[in-house]
C-alpha cells in the first residue's frame, strides 16, 4: 500500500504544485523518483515527528498541501498535540500518512505498535480518519481528500485485502445483507480475514474505510441486529457506538500490550484476529442471537 501511496502522491505532485512530501526518514528509497522529479517539494526532514507536523501545518498555512509520512506511533501518538493544535485548531490542515500500524512491525514489539492512533485522532474536532484496506481505496481516498484544508489521517498497511469495496469517502460498503440477526462490522486490511471467516456464516457484513465521518446511515440499517465489531485497533467500535441506541460488542485488541514479536499473522492469531479466531467470535455472536 506504501507503493500505491507513493504512486498516487507522485501523480498528484505532477499536476498540483502545492503538493509536498515530508518524510521522517522512512520510505526514503521508495520516493527517490519523486525527489528527482520535485526536489524542492521533497524533504526527508528527520526523526523529529513533532516538528514534522508543525512544519507541515506552517506549509498548509501558506497554501501548500503537504503529506507527512513516517511510522504510525511516532507521527500520531507522539505528536498528537501538534496534530490537535497546529493542524486542527488552527484549521491549517494537512495530510498524515502512517505506516507500520496494524502490527506490520510486530517483530519490533510494542514500542512500534499503534493502539490509539485511529481512536485519538477521531476525537480531535474537524479531523478525517481513514483506514484504507486496499490499494484501490488509498488511491481513491488520497485523490479525493488531500486538498480539503482539513487534517486527514491515512493509516496504511503492508497487508491489504483484495476485496472490491466502494471507495467513496465516508461511505461504508455492505458486503453481505442476508437479513441475518448478526451484523459484523470491520475496517481496513483486516477485512480479508473477516470476509473469509464470515463466508459460510449467516451474518451481515459491513466494511468501513472511513472512521470519521462514520457512515451512520448504513449503521442505522442494521440497528435491529446484534452488531459485532471486529477490528485490529480502537476507534471503529467507539465510532459505531456513537450512533444513538446502537449496542455493539467488540472483538479486537485486548487490554494489554501485544509484545510477542513475530509477524502480523502471529499477533492476529494470538489475539483471535486470524480467520479461525474471528469465525469463533462470530459463531458465538450468532449462537447468542439465536438463543436470545
Amino acid at each position: 500500500m506504501r507503493g500505491q501511496f507513493k504512486d498516487t502522491v507522485s501523480d498528484l505532485a505532477g499536476v498540483d504544485e502545492r503538493v509536498a512530501v515530508i518524510l521522517g526518514d522512512v520510505s526514503f528509497y521508495m520516493f527517490r523518483h519523486f525527489q528527482e522529479a520535485h526536489p524542492d517539494r521533497f524533504y526527508n526532514m528527520g526523526i523529529c515527528e513533532n516538528a514534522l507536523i508543525s512544519v507541515a501545518a506552517g506549509m498548509s498555512a501558506m497554501g501548500m498541501k503537504p503529506f507527512v509520512h513516517t511510522i504510525a506511533p511516532f507521527i500520531t501518538e507522539r505528536s498528537v498535540e501538534q496534530i490537535k493544535l497546529d493542524m486542527s485548531y488552527n484549521r491549517f490542515g494537512g495530510n498524515i500518512v502512517s505506516c507500520g500500524a496494524s502490527f506490520d512491525y510486530a517483530w519490533d514489539g510494542a514500542t512500534h505498535h499503534t493502539y490509539m492512533d485511529l481512536a485519538i485522532l477521531r476525537l480531535i474536532p474537524d479531523t478525517e480518519v481513514i483506514q484504507p484496506g486496499s490499494n484501490r481505496e488509498i488511491d481513491s481516498l488520497l485523490r479525493n481528500r488531500y486538498a480539503n484544508d482539513k487534517t486527514t489521517y491515512f493509516r496504511l498497511s503492508d497487508h491489504p485485502h483484495d476485496i472490491d469495496v466502494d471507495t467513496t469517502f465516508g461511505k461504508a460498503t455492505v458486503l453481505k445483507d442476508t437479513g441475518a440477526k448478526v451484523t459484523v462490522m470491520t475496517a481496513g486490511p483486516l477485512l480479508g480475514n473477516v470476509f473469509e471467516a464470515c463466508r459460510e456464516l449467516d451474518v451481515n457484513l459491513v466494511y468501513f474505510h472511513t472512521l470519521k465521518p462514520i457512515d451512520r446511515e448504513t449503521i442505522e440499517r442494521f440497528r435491529d441486529t446484534r452488531i459485532l465489531v471486529v477490528h485490529d485497533a480502537f476507534g471503529l467500535h467507539e465510532a459505531i457506538n456513537e450512533v444513538p441506541d446502537i449496542r455493539t460488542r467488540y472483538h479486537g485488541l485486548p487490554d494489554q500490550f501485544c509484545g510477542w514479536y513475530g509477524t502480523l499473522h502471529d499477533i492476529r492469531k494470538r489475539i483471535g484476529l486470524d480467520v479461525e479466531g474471528i469465525r469463533n467470535a462470530v459463531e458465538r455472536a450468532v449462537s447468542k442471537a439465536e438463543n436470545a
Binding site: I53, V55, A57, M59, E81
Partner: peptide
C-alpha cells in the same frame, strides 16, 4: 493560534519553507 509552548516556532519554520518553495 498559540498557547501550548514549543509549537509556534515549528509552524513558523513551515511557513518559511513554503515561502522558499
Amino acid at each position: 493560534s498559540t498557547g501550548s509552548l514549543g509549537h509556534g516556532i515549528g509552524v513558523a519554520a513551515g511557513m518559511a519553507l513554503a515561502a522558499k518553495i
